[in-house]
Design a protein around this nucleic acid. Sequence first.
DNA 1: ACGAAATGTATGGTTTACATTACATTCTGT
DNA 2: ACAGAATGTAATGTAAACCATACATTTCGT
Lengths: 76, 76
Amino acid sequence: MTTSPIGNHLRRLRFDHGEMTQEALARAAGVTRQTVIALEAGRYAPSLELAFRLARVFGKQVDDVFFWRDDSVALT
Amino acid sequence: MTTSPIGNHLRRLRFDHGEMTQEALARAAGVTRQTVIALEAGRYAPSLELAFRLARVFGKQVDDVFFWRDDSVALT
DNA sequence: ACGAAATGTATGGTTTACATTACATTCTGT
DNA sequence: ACAGAATGTAATGTAAACCATACATTTCGT
């Protein structure tokens, strides 16, 4: 039930996109409804490939749909 | 040995970034050298999370580092 | 030409992003 | 209030994105 470090604006984009349903988005992106539900719930992050497909559905860039929940990045 | 539908500019960015080595990039992104090699070789696509970390290393957007090798996207 | 650094290959294991199916709950219109 | 649509939950399985280790090959400075 842990939530992934990546967030998204899928839910908002769906509504901004004419009351688009989860099922409709799922079909448009070529995934199951379960996947859309899990993504909106933040249960896991999509693969980069799926991120591209989802962004394309809304005519957006990946960076406009998904974002980084910055926790802490320790680099040397 | 199949190549993933997602390409990237990692190799070029590494060089544009002061002869940065694969090992250095790996450490900067918090991943193993094997992963960088596999990504540059196009053996698989990174997770979205790793894509974000890699893009950040170069101060770029995900969409500027990775791209979609458009084959055919059939949607209804 | 030699050695070291950089890059590549091989194998095996763990985690997670998916699919599939089935069922439960909430929202909506009439 | 009821029916149907939309959303959510649960359980199991698979493929692929990682890690770790070890070894082989190429590149490069001196």
